[in-house]
């Protein structure tokens, strides 16, 4: 016979990033996030901030990057209200937005704690830390209070 095997944790079904120093060289990002700081990496010689954070500068290939705090607010450039097809662990409706944080850094992120009907281009949002399975954290945004 073949026994049922232990399926308590399947790594390839876990879409949340690994966040510990033994599994991720960018673990500092998640440590900062846990402390309430949304950060990314800057290349001091290129004077460029990148998203997502990097271990090596994509322009000069320096590996001496520094962590910088992103601004405490961002601007919504566009958004969509999703009402079908959420990944396991997420509940609908979900709001996603293009959030611009600096002239160099803007990305697509989830906006939470918002009435979808109140979303609009140009609104101001602020980062928020959300908990994730297996003692991890993730980032999202919410309308600026």
């Amino acid at each position: 016979m073949i026994n049922e095997f232990n399926l308590d944790y399947i790594y390839i079904m876990d879409y949340i990033p690994q966040q510990s120093p033994e599994h991720n060289k960018l673990h500092t990002f998640f440590e900062n996030l846990r402390a309430g700081r949304l950060t990314t990496t800057r290349c001091p010689s290129c004077q460029r901030d990148f998203w997502p954070p990097r271990t090596v500068c994509p322009l000069c290939h320096s590996n001496t990057l520094e962590w910088v705090d992103l601004p405490s607010t961002g601007t919504v450039r566009g958004f969509s209200i999703q009402t079908s097809g959420a990944a396991p662990g997420l509940t609908l409706p979900m709001v996603f937005a293009r959030v611009q944080l600096t002239d160099q850094v803007g990305f697509v992120a989830r906006v939470i704690r918002v009435d979808p009907a109140e979303m609009e281009v140009g609104m101001t949002v602020e980062p928020v830390v959300v908990s994730a399975p297996r003692d991890r954290v993730m980032w999202a945004f919410r309308p600026k209070i």
Partner: peptide
Amino acid sequence: EGSTGLTAPVQFAL
């Protein structure tokens, strides 16, 4: 991106 739940419909909706 995927870790936040982002899939194709939203990208193209934007």
